[in-house]
Design a protein around this nucleic acid. Structure first.
Lengths: 193, 193
DNA sequence: CCACAAAAACTAATAACATTAGTTTTAGAT
DNA sequence: ATCTAAAACTAATGTTATTAGTTTTTGTGG
């Protein structure tokens, strides 16, 4: 009743993460994962429902780890410093797990419930940071969207080699974060009075 | 000496763009393009060097059209209004050609010269807008990076369904642009004195 | 008007991949 | 020791990219 052990969904996803970070998300194929686990690719179907589910699990794991990293960085910090720490944690995560980060927006079905919940947790976390700046309700949500746009765009451009020139990327990031903070009052003025 | 006409690289790329915009960049396969053109897929190799080159051409076309749209929007406008117009043009392009926009950062080789040149044209265009705010040199480059990060992140999040909540996206965009403008002095203070 | 050259189409074949069906192995429970 | 169900396997199908080699086509030069 309890046959062979060792293999399960987590192990498959972990192997996929390693491949993604080492060779890029495009290199994550069932064939490649199976090879890494010393197994034939149809065997994976005993634990996971095909490539689609593997990709969904990667998106989920990416969102959860990203959220955890941001939450950890935010611990006990608020205001400008909290924003800086959360931003750096976001970019650090994308740098340290580039393949996994790629999966963040590549879910086969972005409307999937679990994906939505994981994303909501991030929104909520950032919203708490925004509350220190007097932002609530729609103003807060718009600000969170701006924040995510900025950080996701930066992470993607950096990961994909979109910044051509040899100019310090950390400097770019620090300035961008400070500029974002300077712009925050706009959201308050426009919506919270 | 001048055999069959009708087919050439441009036509292949145009078909690929239609498929990308209608079904997503992932659906752009040589098989699919060939089918659309009423031809067998090996025939495409007479005009284009495989899927890799097709993808590169898509990236190139995306960057060139994006640049053209931004340049057109900028015509005769500067300062806050110039920034707004360029930003809207960027997002409009991503909305109207979602599949082509996907290709912007998905070049097989981001270091390719032509890709670099096309990206540089965009950087230059945005830099000119930044000059109205008194930004030069490195300050200008950092600001351009922040601007691209913000717009690319917004475009990607919107395209991929990353913004879950039913909150007006145009409002988010307008606020984000204004907040960016508000933050611009940061770049000047930090680097141009 | 015809033949030729070369471009551009074609067919055939190979290799990688995802997935399904059906079979065999295995290890814990009885 | 046997049975059972999970989990591995092999075999097969269909899709894709790509290469090799063949045939078709058509403007040009004779």
């Amino acid at each position: 009743m309890t046959p062979r052990i060792g293999m399960d969904k987590q192990i498959i996803v972990a192997a996929a993460v390693e491949i993604a970070d080492a060779e890029g998300l495009e290199s994550v194929t069932l064939a490649r994962v199976a090879e890494k686990l010393g197994v034939r690719s149809p065997s994976l179907y005993n634990h996971i429902n095909g490539l689609q589910e593997l990709r969904m699990q990667l998106t989920l794991l990416a969102l959860n780890r990203l959220q955890a990293a941001m939450a950890d960085a935010a611990q006990g910090h608020a205001g400008e410093e909290g924003l800086r720490r959360v931003s750096r944690a976001y970019v650090s995560f994308a740098r340290m797990q580039p393949g996994l980060y790629e999966a963040v927006l590549r879910s086969p079905d972005p409307a999937e419930q679990q994906v939505g919940e994981a994303a909501s947790a991030i929104v909520k976390l950032v919203q708490e940071q925004m509350s220190c700046f007097g932002l609530e309700g729609d103003a807060s949500l718009h600000a969170v969207r701006g924040f995510r746009s900025m950080l996701h765009g930066f992470a993607e451009l950096e990961r994909a080699g979109g910044f051509g020139l040899p100019l310090d990327l950390n400097k770019t990031l620090e300035l961008m974060i400070e500029a974002f903070g300077r712009g925050l009052p706009v959201y308050k003025e426009a919506l919270n009075g």
